[in-house]
Design a protein around this nucleic acid. Structure first.
Lengths: 190, 190
DNA sequence: TATATACTTGAGTGATCACTCAAGAAAGCC
DNA sequence: GGCTTTCTTGAGTGATCACTCAAGTATATA
């Protein structure tokens, strides 16, 4: 009996993610979203409920995509080479709406307001860190990383380096690719 | 003939800096500023002209303070020990309004809007990087760093690591001090 | 074809945004 | 004490914020 929506919900979330990623939470107004999603306010609120609800969907998708990308990379190259390639991949995509990590941007913007989206972003970052630790552990098993090192410690530092790289990549006049190479090379010495 | 202002302009800029540093540009409303500075709108605009003008003053002060702190540290400890101590110092101050760097937060928030304050923050970051490079060079002269290494390359990586550390320190559940120690220790191997 | 069930539209909600300005209060100089 | 000059006050500006809702439209079932 019902009428079908004219939009592709998946596509809308992608476009919202790009907008939020680039402009941040406060920097993205409903006017911006209406323009990017080609939706009038009524349809928007019928479909997503609120700006925050859509931001949450976008954030979750961003995190899921990142995890998937790393998984695929690990399947293709093995753990250590995946970890080495990942930083460069994160900053070389010119089509991406921003170089910096959307999770980090969200934490930095919303942590001071005690906004639930900040802790959600942080949870996603923690999950990423766990994934890094697993890859470091696998790299140890493969003999590519010294077995006396703690994979969790390595992952914590790797995550921090990655976040720093992606902040640097957002700046003007910084050769971020060189930093990415240095991070990758330093993993060969473990 | 004139009447003197009731406020200490220096103190007001400090308080504004703390507020902007913690809550960001969009996250700090004029209501927030009026409350923190104990000023009515009229006095505020007579004294500072606009929210952006005050943000600029706050940003410049933040950058100047950081440079001064590093200078003092270098005078006290020498170049290499100053570079080793600086990361820990940046995150251990519990009285600071935030762990993350205000310059980085400003770039991340305002770069997508092409806001002049973003490039100003970036310029401050570049100046910091230059200061790091000078210290690395001095450390080379003192024999604490391998002379075959390029101080500018070292400074670029150090800056990136520092930014990553301070993003990590803003997160919940991350042992940032451990990362700071790792960064300091890695400088001993140069 | 008639009806039920969504979806779409867009003017309009109160709240908050950065900011203005006229009026009043206080201090230094004559 | 009178005058000038600046500072302080706070109600008020239009613009924009996230969001609502009643009316209109399209579609699948009966």
């Amino acid at each position: 009996m019902p009428r079908k929506p004219e939009y592709d919900r998946n596509d809308l979330i992608d476009r919202a993610r790009d907008l939020f990623w680039r402009r941040g939470w406060a920097g993205t107004s409903l006017k911006n979203l209406e323009a990017a999603l080609q939706m009038k306010p009524g349809s928007f609120y019928a479909a997503f409920g609120s700006k925050d609800a859509l931001f949450e969907l976008a954030l979750d998708r961003y995190a899921k995509d990142g995890q998937l990308r790393l998984q695929i990379l690990a399947a293709e190259l093995g753990p250590i080479k995946a970890l080495q390639r990942f930083p460069e991949m994160a900053i070389e995509n010119d089509a991406a709406p921003a170089k910096a990590c959307m999770l980090a941007k969200t934490v930095l913007e919303l942590h001071a307001r005690d906004h639930p989206l900040a802790s959600r972003a942080n949870a996603h970052l923690l999950k990423m860190e766990t994934q890094f630790a697993e890859l470091f552990q696998q790299a140890q098993s493969a003999g590519d990383v010294d077995k006396s090192l703690d994979p969790k410690v390595l992952a914590r530092r790797y995550q921090s380096d990655l976040l720093g790289l992606r902040v640097s990549a957002e700046r003007e006049g910084v050769d971020a690719k060189a930093i990415a190479t240095e991070i990758a090379d330093s993993l060969s010495l473990l």
